[in-house]
Design a protein around this nucleic acid. Structure first.
Lengths: 117, 117
DNA sequence: CCTTCATTTCGATATTCGTTGAAATATCGA
DNA sequence: TCGATATTTCAACGAATATCGAAATGAAGG
């Protein structure tokens, strides 16, 4: 997952309705949710939500599958895994989960490398 | 960290120059980097970078500290930790680090909860 | 075939974002 | 205080984004 894909994914999630939609899809699991249900739960017009789902889809974060006359959307966990992995490696310089307490998680791997800077 | 703060942080990182700047700051560690150095390394005019740094700062992802006539910026690891924590909890439904191999990391905690949906 | 249902695409519009040079602010040294 | 250095703020512009109703597409059932 290169930097460009990361930016696309971050942009896709950086919006109220899209973040909420993605969270619902994650909760829904592999079975996913149809667009209509998503729109109703979010209180957003169908056409608006369709635009947002297209953004998420274009970013590779969700998948579309037709089932009868409904389009079922579901979260792409691999993509999300890739995004989080990138953030941990490149923007967190190390381990978030390695430490036992959550307070010290994200910290620079090298405590002080002023020499190379 | 509430959903609104998360969206602000995601928006802040969802931009080429800002993501690059943040990565540099993470690499730089606690000592941080002055605005000028950042602008030069990114090949962005000072005024443009200042705008981006303000965005990151407003999102709580970086901190500013005056040192002589330079303004030193540094990454706020706690904020980044909060962001990643949120994504893992709310958008990944569980463990990224819990599994041994990276391929299966981000997956729905509940394999199939079609009943409640 | 025609109708109904689910969803997307199309226009049009208001808002926000990214960019930049020029001017303003702040610090330091002589 | 003056001049040099480091950085931000301002003003203006084009580009991208979010929104929504209306029209178009695609599938199912009589």
């Amino acid at each position: 997952m290169d930097a460009d894909a990361i930016i696309k994914a971050l942009s896709a999630l950086a919006q109220e309705h899209r973040l909420a939609a993605f969270r619902l899809l994650v909760q829904a699991g592999a079975s996913g949710l149809p667009a209509g249900v998503l729109a109703e739960r979010l209180g957003v017009p169908n056409s608006s939500l369709s635009f947002h789902l297209a953004q998420l889809s274009h970013a590779g974060l969700i998948r579309q599958e037709r089932q009868g006359r409904s389009l079922i959307y579901s979260a792409d966990y691999a993509a999300m895994n890739g995004l989080i992995g990138y953030l941990m490696e490149n923007c967190c310089a190390g381990a978030v989960c390695g430490s036992d307490d959550a307070s010290s998680g994200c910290a620079p791997a090298i405590s002080d490398e002023r020499k190379s800077a």
